[in-house]
Design a protein around this nucleic acid. Structure first.
Length: 322
DNA sequence: AACGCATACAACCGCATGGAA
DNA sequence: ATTCCATGCGGTTGTATGCGT
């Protein structure tokens, strides 16, 4: 019955990941593809729980992630999507394929929420309080804790407004006039051709960091086949030290970082390595789907989607503008 | 230079859900 | 039908870093 536990809590390492661990994880995913996370700590010798490995990959190491400053457009999109979807960070992230839900959530909590609160406070001081708006906002910024006094009637009214807004947004997005379709990234993922930076920087950073230390701890990785790959990586990174690290990336992942990633957010071993046969069925389906999708969507749609969202008349828009 | 506080972000925790055994 | 695992998600925490005094 059932399965053995994914990892015993004893002997599981916690805290920040080291470059060595990152390389071991990247090497493993390169060989076997993402998924089956339970096997990752077992096969790599990483003293991490499977969950931690998955998170590290998803939020930091996987190709296609852009880190650093959020653009104004991105911030606007987040604000608008947040007002539309609430704290559904995964859903919001699907509209911003370069960003992870964790990143968006952090950015919201550290920057945008404060910005909006400040802005709202200024607004409320100036004019009579619009309780509906205030309540609605406070609700969305307090992780749906309903400790504040919103009567049921108000809540229902607000819900209806939200539904109306969602309908409106959907209508706008689907309208022929706009000729744009809002397609969450989860649906588009198979064929999206938009070029966005892979996590080259992240890999490069970790390689750089590793190179600094590698001189005295080359032997750090000392078990199983994965370490052979790690050693290859180390020697490769040494060989290319001072040169373009994206070449190293290319050799690791089998495609150049400036190219579109084979499968949007997910690393696709099917296209990166010949032994990724498990994914071949998937890619067949993806191919079929992409034909349909290409028929349904033109390449400009994403741009239009972004523009639509940025122009969508949420109250957040006026709040956001500085 | 040293200290304390604030901020940003990576990582963890707990829960929900779907699915395999 | 039941148990239990894998995964995904959102909330929270811990730590590194920056900044002011």
């Amino acid at each position: 019955m059932g399965r053995p536990p994914c990892c015993d809590k004893l002997g599981v390492k916690k805290g920040p990941w080291t470059p060595e661990e990152d390389i071991m994880l990247v090497s493993y995913v390169q060989k076997h593809g993402p998924g089956n996370w339970r096997q990752v700590p077992i096969n790599t010798g990483l003293l991490r729980c499977s969950k931690s490995c998955r998170l590290r990959w998803a939020n930091y190491l996987r190709p296609g992630i852009r880190r650093g400053d959020f653009t104004d457009d991105e911030e606007k999109m987040i604000i608008q999507l947040q007002s539309l979807l609430g704290n559904k960070w995964a859903a919001i992230a699907s509209y911003l394929p370069e960003r992870t839900d964790n990143d968006i959530k952090n950015h919201w909590n550290t920057h945008l929420k404060k910005k909006l609160i400040k802005r709202l406070q200024m607004g409320f001081e100036d004019q009579d309080l619009n309780h509906n708006n205030k309540d609605r906002f406070m609700c969305s910024t307090t992780s749906s804790s309903s400790s504040h006094s919103v009567s049921r009637g108000q809540w229902e009214k607000r819900l209806q407004t939200d539904i109306q807004m969602a309908k409106q947004a959907l209508n706008d997005a689907l309208s022929i006039d706009h000729k744009s379709i809002m397609v969450p990234q989860t649906i588009k993922s198979c064929t999206q051709k938009t070029i966005y930076p892979c996590s080259t920087d992240n890999i490069a950073k970790l390689l750089k960091g590793f190179m600094k230390n590698s001189s005295n701890n080359n032997k750090a990785c000392s078990n199983s086949s994965i370490n052979e790959t790690s050693d290859e990586l180390i020697s490769e990174s040494k060989a290319s030290s001072g040169t373009n690290l994206s070449e190293t990336f290319e050799s690791i992942f089998g495609f150049h970082p400036s190219f579109p990633s084979p499968n949007n957010s997910d690393f696709s071993p099917a296209s990166a390595s010949p032994e990724g046969s498990v994914f071949q069925e998937e890619s067949k389906e993806a191919l079929q789907f992409s034909m349909l999708e290409n028929w349904l969507l033109d390449q400009t749609s994403e741009v239009v989607v972004k523009e639509d969202l940025c122009n969508f008349p949420f109250d957040g828009d006026t709040i956001f503008e500085d």
